[in-house]
Design a protein around this nucleic acid. Structure first.
Lengths: 213, 213
DNA sequence: TAGTATTTTGACCAAATGGTCAGGTTTGTG
DNA sequence: CACAAACCTGACCATTTGGTCAAAATACTA
């Protein structure tokens, strides 16, 4: 028996799987599921192709594992809200946490984008289940805020999409942003500036006033 | 000589090239440059692979032709503005024409997204040249409007990106939008509703008042 | 209708694809 | 140190890839 640890993961395994996942996230994000080759992932991870397949089993399993990792990051960000909360605080926290996800995991964000671009074949269940529920729950709260006059009567679902798209953009279209702004990369100050801009414009645009009023 | 027409295009050629371009736009949009196969494009166009290659020469040439077609659509939308124009009118027209592009050419929009996702290797020149100039020219006008108190002092480049991302979203993330809203497709009324929402929120968010005031 | 230019297509090619496997090396532990 | 489990990897395989080509079919025009 040699006392195998419950999950039976050795240090080597953890290290290599990490390397593979990170390399694969970038390759899949750039080239999509079909366009990514196991060979390219292996090279990016600095391992022979057979070794990569030894760990992940197959290209498909690797891809699914990456999507799951990214979805768990999403979920970690999706905390619930109630009508009693302050609209300004909630909206601002929403924008800021979504932007943090984009900034800390740009490859993951792009992977998600590539998956949705091809019609989200691997994410139908998630989109039409968990995520849809979450959106509608939030939407209901937004509507109640509108009724109470705490914000303008805007379509809550379009508002959620607005926040998602405006933040997601800085990962998915990074190449465009860098090209147009003539930067090599976006630093923390840039992200700060964009986030403040989005909070300002979107809150004001919805008729939500910061609590300091 | 048989009086060859200047551009030497026969009816057959026009018809087949059109079929091929349209089929290819969809396949490239879904799977990216690497992920798309000539075989898949040929099947979508209802032609044998060799026939496709007879017309387009190579996969790369086909891809470049598609990007050029999409960029010319972009350019057709990018009319210039002046400080004397009305901010509300200009911003609203900007949002509406960008949304029209998204609605009338969703596959082209996704093709563009896929290209940028992979780092925009074929679009560096365009992004860092023509498009950058256009953005900065607009940005300068926005700044002058801010100075004149016609709008809030927001970062004009982030504002342009906000409009691009919020509209682009409905093509690139169509699968997500459909999944969450439980629709089969977005009809004209949906697009109308989203566009009105975006105009309302973004104009108000920037402190721009519609001229009817 | 004769004859030329264009179009069509299956057969073919070298390279790359995802994946398997046998046989080796390393690692951890009793 | 023994030994089993885990790890590593080059050789190999069937299939698909982008692309070529020669020969047949079709379309246009004088």
């Amino acid at each position: 028996m040699t006392t195998p640890t419950p999950a039976d993961v050795t240090r080597t395994r953890v290290r290599n799987e990490q390397q593979i996942l990170d390399a694969a996230e970038d390759v899949f994000a750039r080239h999509g599921y079909r366009g990514a080759s196991v060979q390219a992932i292996a090279e990016a991870a600095g391992l022979p192709k057979s070794n990569v397949l030894y760990y992940v089993g197959s290209k498909r399993k690797l891809y699914v594992a990456l999507l799951e990792r990214m979805m768990s990051r999403w979920n970690a960000m999706l905390d619930d809200i109630s009508v009693e909360d302050d609209p300004a605080e909630v909206l601002e926290a929403f924008i800021r946490s979504k932007m943090t996800l984009t900034r800390t995991h740009p490859e993951g964000s792009r992977l998600f984008a590539a998956e949705v671009l091809q019609g989200a074949p691997f994410l139908q269940e998630y989109l039409r289940g968990e995520l849809r529920e979450w959106v509608h729950q939030r939407a209901r709260v937004f509507e109640q805020w509108s009724e109470r006059g705490l914000m303008d009567p805007v379509d809550p679902v379009w508002l959620i999409f607005l926040i998602w798209s405006a933040t997601q953009h800085y990962a998915d279209f990074e190449a465009q942003v860098l090209g147009i702004t003539d930067r090599e990369r976006l630093d923390d100050a840039d992200y700060q500036s964009v986030t403040d801009f989005l909070c300002q414009v979107i809150l004001k645009g919805c008729g939500v006033t910061s609590r300091r009023s």
